[in-house]
Write a protein that binds this DNA or RNA. Structure first.
Lengths: 341, 341
DNA sequence: GCCGCTGATGTAATCGATTGCAGAACCTAA
DNA sequence: TTAGGTTCTGCAATCGATTACATCAGCGGC
């Protein structure tokens, strides 16, 4: 395909003029503009982006690292990011890290090579290269933001919900229904997000003086780990009457296990999920869960990042978005309680 | 961050040598190599990719356009693509088109601007720019491939399953169970994929001389459209005893509707889905469906594309991957039949 | 008629790498 | 000693845009 020189020759102008026609048409006379546009059309010209990037030191790309795109939760956040990015004229470079630190690092290197203008991290770790960039630019903001996982340790702004509060509300819901013995299936505890939720849940258990009836299992956000966690919880001498899972997929696993053991949900066991992914209402029974504004989180991270890039030097502080406890049919008063009534 | 000149100065060599140390170390003497690497380390240097792209006319990026990432089916294909791409040293540029033609076109323009080396289209349309590129390069192969949607019209290679055969198998399964009156909820019929499935299903209905008991509704792959389609099917004078949906989400919607109308699945109504997404087994009852090798499809498209890029001039023809009918609990003999037994 | 201004366009430097070609240094064999 | 070969390194052109600055024409005002 043609380059700018051929277009210039065809139109009988200099490359500077061609460039201007394409990026600031108003400074070029209408007549010249028309000739250039004709030449562009004729030669089917589109400016080479590498050359433009090199000259302007901008790429128009945002790099996004996701722990696992096949997780619908992240897929929705990513969709929000993509949508906001393209609306602002940016393209998205996708890095699925599979929770692998080496892959995270490899992607972060792309920032250093200037393959993207900024980085959105959806995992809980800040890759080495990104961290060193953040350090190098301090006290100015590095073009790196985080979604979902808020941790002051990372030293970068973030968009998230109040995970502790949300978990507390889920617990409140169960306690209010009359549950006393509650099992928890967390996500990996390396992530602040899981720890925040655990903190919120624990605080409510303490408040209810129910710490002794509060059992915690660690999961990894997969359906299987939810099933396994429930298996262990329900196999105890005093099994809990409710299980609170830190995402919907584990809740689905827990329901599967409950059914297999002949328990009816919610009659014999209440289950609460987290995230409210699209399928939460399709399982049987439809899941009570904490709804997160996934798309808004994605869009928010882009907003934050572009703020930094455009140096809108309004201190780009972290953003906390609202969540909602969505009560469906997987929770009900515990059996013991119901008999009393 | 430093550029190659500073590194060269620091190491006391020319930029050519620095470049060689980084891309073909064996042609540089060990001693020089060490000095250069030290300088690289010291200055925290990473080659600027725009400059490299400009010079080499390669970007190391693959552009992928997806109709909707929040659809778990596409998410898994994308994951396969990402994995294969990064294994081969390529990065993925993501374009979520939301089925919007204008957005598809906008992304295809990126190819023309040389922002990516190749394009993987997961939708059913070939954007204008991509089509004109294909035409321009004929008879040589343009670096454009398709996943899922096989259509000779597109004129580009593709990785997919045999959709007609798969749909036929789903119908066979239902007919074998004794169903006679079967409703279908298709995807948008603009896509060859839906048409192929419909063709396969129709051929079996004809073969069974059951065309008159074969009702087709058009859906759009969303849970809601599945629910709506089922509503219309079950509201007919002679409602079908089984519904075959062209994806799992619509099947979930259909089950939802059936339940709401007081029908038991599979006792009163059998439901078959398509894709076997992760949640197919979590609904109640677990879904009988056609399993597609999503990740393999994604990996396959990358293989095809890289074949074209590396000019492994082995004619990169389309690839058909195997599917599997996965029978779970959402299908059973129809009631009438069961009573007979 | 001259000055200065405005608007349109061209000249050429620049971004930061890669790489063909040439040259230097050193070695080997005749 | 010299021719021929290797091995290593440097010079400088090149990729294709953008943009600061220079130039020039035209025009109004004095």
């Amino acid at each position: 395909m043609a380059n700018i020189y051929e277009v210039a020759r065809q139109a009988g102008v200099s490359t500077a003029t061609v460039s201007r026609v394409l990026s600031q048409p108003h400074v070029v006379s209408p007549d010249t503009r028309r000739r250039v546009l004709q030449a562009v059309e004729l030669l089917d010209y589109a400016p080479n982006s590498a050359a433009k990037n090199l000259r302007t030191l901008r790429t128009g790309k945002l790099l996004v690292t996701v722990p696992d795109i096949s997780n619908p939760f992240f897929a929705l956040i990513l969709q929000g990011i993509e949508d906001a990015a393209q609306r602002e004229g940016y393209a998205v470079l996708l890095g699925d890290t599979q929770h692998d630190e080496a892959r995270e690092d490899r992607y972060a290197l792309m920032l250093k090579r200037k393959e993207a203008d900024g980085l959105i991290v959806l995992g809980h770790r800040l890759p080495h290269e990104a961290a060193s960039l953040v350090r190098a630019m301090a006290p100015r903001c590095a073009p790196v933001v985080n979604g979902c996982e808020f941790s002051p340790k990372l030293g970068i702004p973030s968009v998230h919900i109040d995970n502790a509060k949300a978990a507390a509300e889920a617990m409140d819901h169960l306690y209010r229904l009359g549950h006393r013995s509650i099992g928890i299936i967390t996500g990996p505890l390396v992530s602040p997000l899981s720890r925040d939720r655990l903190r919120g849940a624990t605080s409510r258990a303490k408040q209810q003086r129910a710490e002794r009836d509060f059992v915690v299992m660690t999961g990894d956000f997969s359906i299987e780990s939810g099933a396994a966690g429930a298996e262990r919880l329900l196999g105890r001498r005093d099994p809990p009457t409710a299980i609170f899972c830190f995402n919907d997929e584990m809740a689905m696993g827990a329901i599967e296990t409950a059914k297999r053991r002949g328990l009816r949900v919610p009659l014999d066991l209440s289950v609460v999920g987290f995230d409210d992914i699209r399928f939460a209402r399709c399982v049987d029974p439809p899941l009570t869960t904490i709804a997160q504004p996934m798309r808004a989180i994605g869009e928010g991270t882009v907003g934050l990042l572009l703020g930094i890039l455009h140096d809108d030097s309004e201190a780009p502080s972290s953003v906390t978005l609202p969540h909602t406890l969505t009560v469906r049919s997987s929770t009900a008063p515990p059996r013991a309680n119901r008999i009393k009534n």
